[in-house]
């Protein structure tokens, strides 16, 4: 009974923290992009616009929930929930520090990849059930995009799994900490680059934000959505960004640890709680997301698929072979 209670509290804490982060990521994004574009970003609500996310939330919560008359009503309504649930569920297997993890699955990495695939169903269904051509095109784009890039993502993570010898995210971090360099990003630099690019595509972010390319498809699969269902998609997108940032930190940047050679030189860094290192790595990745969005134009659909199949997948395979050899030689 007490175990269950502790579990519930832990879950609430994790979800509350992540959702607050999501809210303030939208704020940070608007501020940072504003700065990149020589303007101020939100300034009106609260000091420096700090209460903007809350104002946005209140506003969108009280909007009318419109379902288009020709839409497939039931599917239209549950599609955002599918996306959100199968994105949020990933939070359960993320180790935030050495002893804080909701569910210590021994196939944690596989679980994340699997539920990411399921969440695509929500987007496809949203696009199809809206009964709008723009939504439909957006849904189709999303389906083929996520399908192609999931392979690249899987291949880049396969190198990590091979090197660590485990699918458990905690074991991956510990195995990483025991290597000389302390992070997998350096020996697996190809895999790391493939992962970062695939992560951008997997979360439908610029320069691969084709499913919601506003100048082509109006808003893609989101076109017919309004009010809180629209917000749910956004929430899912930002949670997915965080999941990718978590994965990047855990699998390539050493999670909550810092490389041993650094602590050998500066021993006091060992005293810093692991969660802080983890947060720094995650924030850096989120910053990259925002920075790229402010800078780069958007790829075309066929170019996106070309990059996925002709560049990233071969590169991921090369990475896998290299890691296999390295592993064989060191054993």
């Amino acid at each position: 009974m007490i175990e269950l209670l502790i579990m519930l509290i832990k879950t609430t804490v994790v979800f509350a923290i992540v959702l607050t982060h999501v809210a303030y990521t939208t704020y940070a994004e608007r501020k940072l992009i504003g700065r990149a574009q020589a303007r101020m970003g939100p300034m009106e609500v609260g000091p420096h616009g700090l209460l903007q996310p809350i104002a946005d939330f209140i506003k969108i919560f009280f909007k009318e929930d419109i379902v288009p008359i020709n839409a497939e009503r039931f599917i239209f309504q549950i599609a955002p929930l599918i996306v959100l649930i199968f994105t949020m569920i990933n939070l359960t297997v993320i180790p935030f520090s050495s002893n804080f993890i909701l569910a210590d699955l021994n196939v944690g990495l596989l679980f994340i990849l699997a539920s990411a695939s399921v969440s695509v169903y929500g987007i496809i269904l949203a696009g199809w059930s809206s009964n709008s051509k723009y939504s439909f095109l957006g849904g189709l784009r999303s389906a083929s995009q996520v399908l192609s890039y999931e392979i690249a993502l899987g291949l880049s993570l396969a190198g990590v799994v091979l090197a660590a010898g485990s699918l458990n995210l905690r074991d991956i971090v510990i195995a990483q900490h025991n290597t000389a360099l302390g992070i997998y990003a350096i020996p697996q630099i190809i895999g790391f680059v493939v992962f970062v690019i695939a992560a951008f595509a997997e979360t439908n972010r610029a320069p691969f934000d084709l499913p919601e390319a506003e100048t082509e498809l109006v808003a893609g699969y989101l076109t017919e959505y309004s009010a809180f269902r629209y917000a749910l998609f956004f929430l899912a997108e930002y949670v997915a960004m965080y999941i990718m940032a978590f994965l990047c930190a855990l699998c390539f940047l050493g999670g909550w640890t810092i490389p041993k050679f650094i602590t050998d030189i500066l021993p006091f860094l060992d005293k810093v709680p692991g969660i802080i290192w983890f947060a720094i790595k995650v924030y850096a990745f989120i910053f990259l997301y925002i920075w790229v969005r402010a800078t780069l134009p958007r790829y075309r659909f066929d170019q996106l698929l070309n990059i996925g199949w002709k560049v990233l997948i071969p590169a991921g395979l090369v990475n896998l072979i290299i890691i296999a050899f390295l592993k064989r030689l060191s054993l």
Binding site: I33, Q37, T295, L296
Partner: peptide, 16 residues
């Protein structure tokens, strides 16, 4: 034109 192709920062620079 840049915004249509997805580069949104040029938009504001040009408007400035």
């Amino acid at each position: 034109h840049a915004l249509d192709i997805g580069a949104m920062t040029v938009f504001l620079y040009a408007f400035r």
